[in-house]
Design a protein around this nucleic acid. Structure first.
Lengths: 208, 208
DNA sequence: CGATAAGGTGATCATTTGTTCATCTTCGCG
DNA sequence: CGCGAAGATGAACAAATGATCACCTTATCG
C-alpha cells in the first residue's frame, strides 16, 4: 500500500532537501526567491518548474499564498497518538473528550490503521513483560485471534489480557499466577477494543 | 534549567494554538490576515500586537517575510534519538558512524542529558520485563547506583544487566535464572556506558 | 482621578511574493 | 535530423503581505 515513488532528478532532490531543512531549522518553508538564492538560480521561474515537478511526483503539496509549501505531511516524521485513559476503568474509546494527552511516536513503530495508547494499571500481565504504569500501543479493532493480547471491555470494565479459548468458551487470561482467569460468560457485555501491538515504559528508574 | 514560562492571556493562548495547529495541519504557518480571519478580528494590527506579545514572552520567533513564524523549535515536539547498535556486541558508543538509525521520541519520555537507544539481544533480563528485540533507552553516563539496570562494557562485550554488589565486589546480575552472574574481576576491562531509563517494544505480535 | 495594559478598528503604503510569457541551452532518443 | 524534457534566464505585473499610524474601548491598579 505504498505510494509509488517516482524518482527525482538530482536537482529536484537538492531542492526538496533544502525545503525540508529550511522547515526543520526555521520552522517555515522558504519563498521561491530564497530557494533560487540557495540553489544559485538567477530566475524564479526555474524554481517554479522544479516545484511543479515535485508536486507532480507527490513529494510536495503547494497551496495558494506565500511560502505555502508542505513537504512534511506526506511523510510525517512523527505520528501523534492519543492517550485515551487508564485501563481497568471503563473507557469510552470513541469519546475524544476522554483524551488525556497526545504522544508523538516514530512512524516506524506504528502499524497501519487506527491506534491509541493506554496506561496500564496493575501487574496482571507481568509475565508478558507488561508492568504497572506501562503504555500499551493498541490497534483499534473489534476482532482478535486466540493467544493475542487484547484490550477488552467486559461488564463495564476495560482490561488488558490474553485472549484464549478454554472448554469451548473464551477467557481473558492474565499473565500472572496471582490473578484468576476471567471467563467470558454468555450473557456478559463483552467487546474487544483492540489488540496490543506495542509496549512503552518511558520512566524506568527514579530520576527524571 | 527551565525557561521561565511567562503566562499567556486567554487570547494569546488561542492565537498560539491556532498557529501551532495550522502548522500541524498544513505544514506552514498562517499569515497575519489568516489569523485575523479565524480569530474574528477585523484589523491586522491587533494580530500584530498579539504576535509581539508572544515573541516577548518567548513563545514565538518571528523573522522578516511572509508567514515567517516559528512556534515549533522553542518546544520541540519530538527528539531524534540515535540507535547505536545491538547489545552484546561491542559498541563504540562515541562513534557516530555506528549509528544504525534514528528514532523520533516524544520529549516527555526522555530524561535530560545525552541518551541513545540500544536493541537488546537475548532474554537475560526477562524478569525485569526486558525482552529480546526490545529497544532500551540509555542515559549515557559513567557511573551508576547499585540495583540500577545498566549498560556496561566488560572485556569487550557490552551487556544490559543489573548492577549489584556481592561479597564486596560488583557483579552484573541477569534477571533470568537461566543465566549466571558476571563478576567484575579486579583486572577486567570494565566500563559503565549508561543506565537504562526506558524500554520500548514496538513490534509486539505478528503483522506490521 | 490618571496611568497603563490588553484588545480592537480602519486605512495607507512600500515591499514581497507568486504568476506568466518569451527565449535559450543541453542532452538523450527515435 | 527533429523532438521533447530538464534546466535556466529575464522581465513585467497583479495580488498578497507586513509595517505603521491614529484612535477607540474596557478593565485594573495606585
Amino acid at each position: 500500500m505504498e505510494t509509488s515513488e517516482e524518482p527525482l532528478t538530482h536537482r529536484q532532490a537538492e531542492i526538496l532537501h533544502f525545503i525540508q531543512s529550511h522547515i526543520g531549522q526555521l520552522g517555515y518553508p522558504p519563498t521561491l526567491r530564497e530557494i533560487a538564492r540557495k540553489m544559485d538560480i538567477r530566475g524564479i521561474s526555474a524554481v517554479r518548474k522544479h516545484l511543479d515537478a515535485l508536486v507532480r511526483k507527490g513529494r510536495l503539496i503547494r497551496r495558494k499564498g506565500a511560502r505555502a509549501l508542505d513537504a512534511e505531511s506526506l511523510f510525517p516524521s512523527t505520528v501523534p497518538v492519543p492517550v485515551l485513559g487508564r485501563v481497568v476503568a471503563g473507557i469510552p474509546v470513541n469519546a475524544a473528550e476522554n483524551r488525556l494527552d497526545t504522544i508523538a511516536i516514530d512512524p516506524s513503530w506504528i502499524p497501519s490503521g487506527p491506534v491509541f495508547l493506554l496506561r496500564v494499571k496493575g501487574d496482571s500481565m507481568k509475565q508478558a513483560a507488561i508492568l504497572d504504569g506501562d503504555y500499551v500501543l493498541v490497534r483499534a479493532k473489534e476482532t482478535a485471534e486466540e493467544e493475542e493480547i487484547v484490550v477488552a471491555e467486559i461488564d463495564g470494565e476495560t482490561t488488558v489480557k490474553r485472549l484464549r479459548r478454554k472448554d469451548g468458551q473464551f477467557i481473558l487470561a492474565p499473565e500472572n499466577p496471582d490473578y484468576g482467569e476471567i471467563p467470558v460468560a454468555e450473557g456478559s457485555a463483552f467487546r474487544i477494543v483492540g489488540t496490543v501491538c506495542g509496549v512503552f515504559r518511558p520512566a524506568l528508574g527514579a530520576s527524571r
